[in-house]
């Protein structure tokens, strides 16, 4: 199986690797994984007035999982919360030209986005 140029580019030069302060009230954290391959993905967003001003990720897994989360953070920056939740795994599959056996990596990224935003929202509701 050959990785697309875009996957290789994200794998070799991942964007936005790192962490945001998990305890901060304007940061939402999502952590998801795939038990069969043991991949784990953490995706965080920092939100100000409904807009994502920063996004970071940390993924331990295959090239596609790294590329999916790297691309997701790139897309998330500058988006409103509403636009972010509209991101679908198929968008990632298309952009990265992921082969069928790697589609679950894009699903992980979509799940991580949703979890991060719902974590942020539950923090806001608790305030």
């Amino acid at each position: 199986m050959a990785y697309s140029d875009k996957v290789i580019d994200h794998y070799e030069n991942p964007r936005n690797v790192g962490s945001l302060d998990k305890e901060s009230s304007d940061v939402g954290t999502g952590v998801v994984g795939a038990p069969e391959c043991g991949d784990v993905m953490k995706l965080q967003v920092q939100i100000e007035e409904g807009v994502i001003i920063d996004a970071k990720f940390k993924t331990f897994g295959c090239g596609s999982a790294i590329a999916s989360s790297s691309l997701a953070t790139e897309w998330l920056k500058g988006k409103t919360v509403e636009e972010a939740t509209a991101i679908r795994n198929v968008d990632i599959v298309e952009e990265l030209a992921l082969p069928p056996v790697k589609i679950h990596c894009s699903v992980l990224a979509e799940d991580a986005i949703k979890q991060a935003i719902s974590d942020y929202e539950s923090k806001q509701n608790n305030d």
Binding site: V31, V32, G33, A34, P35, V40, K42, K58, F60, Q115
Partner: peptide, 23 residues
């Protein structure tokens, strides 16, 4: 069904940290 289980976020965070240390 491995995908039918929602893993405990704390466990996943723990795994992430261990993987980072291994790396």
């Amino acid at each position: 069904d491995p995908n039918g289980v929602n893993a405990d976020p704390e466990f996943l965070m723990d795994m992430l940290e261990i993987k980072e240390q291994l790396h």
